[in-house]
Amino acid sequence: MGTLASEEGGEDLASALRRATAMLAEAGVPSPRADAELLADHLLGCGLGRLRSLAVIGAGVPDGFWELVEERSKRVPLQHLTGTAHFRHLTLSVGPGVFVPRPETETLVTLALDWISAQSPVLAAPVVVDLGTGSGAIAAAIAAECRASRVHAVELSEFAYAWAARNVALPEVGGRVELVLGDLRTAFPELDGQVDLVVSNPPYIPAGMVPREPEAAEHDPELALYGGGEDGLELPLATIASAARLLRPGGFFVMEHAEVQAEALSARLARDPAWTSVTSHRDLNDLPRATSAVRVEASPVEELRP
């Protein structure tokens, strides 16, 4: 548990949280009160319930609190300051050099796990590939929640790979993820035609769509954001090509993308004879955020181009 600064002649925790909330709100932080409490809890390690109790009884301010508030006011991501990001049932390690997983991506894991569940008991030990794993969030979550799965994940960035290595080593994951450093375009040739499920949240932001939030625009690595080309579809299309190569007939593919890309990607998959059952899925904000399809051909398909 962290150290509480002396409150003698100074500010107590409740007052500090109010002042920090006002500072963060003025800086445009979307959830200022929650962030102020999370920063204090990061230092104290007591849990939010206990933190609020300490505020009520007039406890002191934890050492280092205002330094963290100042950094958050500069729109440094909360997760970079705490070193953690919560994703489904996991607490992941994150920091500079890796894309911070978003709540919307949890829907992608739900779609993948629902498909696996629908195949039971025929699919006893699903083989899963996560293309462009980033922090390892998707791969780790699937392995943790589907203990029969064998998950393979690939990441191109050495910085992100280092974070992913920590996350796939979590006890909840149980050593069920094979992580490799490499390109999603060519990854896992030894698994061609043998994979049951391919899931991906590839870089997909179009060139002209700079993220509005400073946390993403200034701190998420460009390699994890921009999909290539004016429409951002180069890497999503490469992901589709790799999925077609890897999946067995009847295998399932699901990929996250920008809402403005949903129609183009659905149309591309629908006119390709390698795919059937093309479906668009909406995220927590009711935006078309993911597209899925089922592999119907075993032979390689011609590479898709924007």
Rank of each mutant, 00 (worst) to 15 (best):
V127Q: 09
P77L: 01
I138E: 07
D12N: 15
L51N: 08
E297I: 10
E7P: 12
A124P: 05
R248D: 00
V29D: 03
S93Y: 12
A137T: 05
G229N: 04
T239K: 06
I142A: 01
E178R: 14
T133W: 10
R18M: 14
A59F: 06
R102S: 08
A290H: 12
L13K: 11
Y226W: 15
A112L: 06
P300L: 10
H42S: 14
L48F: 12
P77R: 08
A16I: 10
S157R: 05
P103Q: 13
T105Y: 07
A143T: 05
P211V: 07
A270N: 03
P236N: 08
L38N: 02
M255G: 02
M23I: 15
S242W: 00
G250I: 08
A16M: 12
V76P: 01
S292D: 03
P288G: 13
T110M: 06
P249D: 00
D283T: 07
A125K: 09
P249Y: 00
C146Y: 09
H80F: 15
H219V: 09
A298C: 01
L108K: 06
P306A: 08
G97N: 09
E259W: 06
D35A: 08
L269K: 01
Y204V: 07
E234V: 12
M255D: 03
H86A: 13
R33Q: 15
L39W: 10
F87L: 08
V210R: 15
D183Y: 06
P77C: 08
A143G: 05
A241C: 14
P32R: 11
L43F: 06
F65G: 07
S299E: 15
L54H: 05
E302K: 14
L13T: 10
G232Q: 03
I205K: 06
R176T: 00
G193F: 10
L265P: 01
P30R: 11
H152T: 01
L43K: 09
V151P: 02
E178V: 15
A34E: 14
A207K: 11
L269E: 01
L284G: 02
H281S: 04
F253H: 03
E104R: 05
A207P: 00
R295V: 06
R295I: 07
Q194F: 09
M209D: 14
H80S: 04
Q119W: 00
G28C: 08
L265I: 15
L38D: 00
R75Q: 03
A244I: 05
L108F: 13
A140Q: 04
R176F: 02
I240S: 02
N201E: 10
E67G: 03
D35R: 04
D41L: 14
P306F: 11
R271N: 01
P249S: 01
E71I: 00
D220F: 12
G9A: 11
E71K: 15
R52N: 12
L108M: 10
L265A: 05
A243C: 04
S277Y: 00
V301H: 14
G49M: 06
Q194T: 10
R212Y: 01
F87M: 13
L284E: 02
G174V: 03
H152M: 04
V301R: 15
P103W: 09
E7Y: 11
